[in-house]
């Protein structure tokens, strides 16, 4: 089996909680999609409702720079 590649991983370490479901977020599988491109990542996810959290630092850092790179394709 091929080794799965994740472009980015954030482990919430029990510090975040889903407000709706009342459970801690866990490190879960998610994907970013933009302009017909997809990137597998691991982000804080609610194990019950599937809410995927994108922290501010990630949005303004890595995500923004990948967006810019793809926009110029």
């Amino acid at each position: 089996m091929a080794i799965e590649k994740n472009y980015y991983t954030i482990d919430p370490q029990g510090k975040l909680k889903c407000f709706k479901c009342g459970v801690p977020l866990i490190k879960g599988k998610a994907k970013f999609m933009y302009l017909d491109n997809g990137f597998p990542v691991e982000l804080p996810v609610c194990p019950v409702c599937g809410f995927v959290y994108v922290p501010e630092e990630l949005a303004l850092g890595k995500v923004a720079s990948v967006e810019r790179a793809l926009e110029d394709k």
């Binding site: 994907k31 970013f32 933009y34 501010e56 949005a59 995500v63 967006e67």
Partner: peptide, 15 residues
């Protein structure tokens, strides 16, 4: 308190 945005879509991935 704070606000931010991104253009990429994000969703849960199965598997």
């Amino acid at each position: 308190h704070r606000a931010w945005s991104h253009r990429m879509r994000v969703e849960k991935r199965e598997g």
